[in-house]
Amino acid sequence: MTYPLLSVKNLTKYYKKEGSLFSPPEDEVLALDDVNFDMYEGETLSIVGESGCGKTTLAKLITRLIEPTRGFIFFQGKDLISLNPGEMRKIRRKLQIIFQDPYASLPPRMKVGEIVGEGLEIHGLFKGGKKMELVKRVLGEVGLNAGDMNRYPQEFSGGQRQRINIARALILHPRLVVADEPVSALDVSVKGQIIKLMQDLKENYRFNYIFISHDLTTVEEFSHRVIIMYLGRIVELASTRKLFEKPMHIYTRALISAVPHRKALRNKEKFILEGEVPDPRNPPSGCHFHPRCSFSQDICQKERPFLKDMGNNHLVACHLY
């Protein structure tokens, strides 16, 4: 029996501003509410949802850039939350993150060579010439030139910067890369190139990745499983094929309907959502989705639906099932 590469249990995060001497604590803002899932070696997992669904919080929690309010994260069997700062720093080598904004995520005053090589230095792996050699190789693999080492990030376009980000993450040979909307800020014609690059590198470097996106169409081609999130909770989790063939949650169906000109859905009924995502400071009772759901019943306002297995590991959190 294989045990999961990553296992997330009851993960919950509330953001709150701590009160100080003179100001009382502010309202808690719900970011992530009791999230559970496992991820196995070799799979590409996508997490999809709109703004406020908690996907970026989840990315930062998994890489422990922020601390959870409750819950556990097991990575390669180790409980990440219980690690002390020194142990955590060591494990970061195996656990990398790629940020959405290719402009904000690179230090402005360092040369590309230094940026990409920094990880090696931090972990005391290679220095000097050997380091530069490795940097050159990785840059080549992400489609940049060795000559780019001595240039500054400002000289590169968004897509090229995202390549630098990928190189920086991969030079440490991580096991898991969390990519937080890596292509959302890029132009349409560049998106595909970056996704393809990540796919190719996955073969060579044998890493696994979690791909976070607000756009369901982007993830369809390459992910094995998809998690749909809404306002801090997982509402549906299924293999990509099943999710697109037979979406169960109304929210998932609405997301698929919002994709223009989808052949598969052209003749099926369309779900157009009314309203907007509610305020996370004051989430709706029961099912978070009920104010926007056309099938809402009494129970939806009262009780939170939990994920139910509808067979073949297709999980959905909805009182209709």
Binding site: G159, V188, G192, H261, K263
Partner: peptide, 22 residues
């Protein structure tokens, strides 16, 4: 290249090798 990324595009995609040059 813009049309090719559309889910409804049915022809064989050409591949654009270049990068978005700044």
């Amino acid at each position: 290249s813009l049309v090719e990324v559309s889910p409804s595009f049915e022809r064989v995609a050409w591949r654009l090798p270049g990068e978005d040059a700044p």
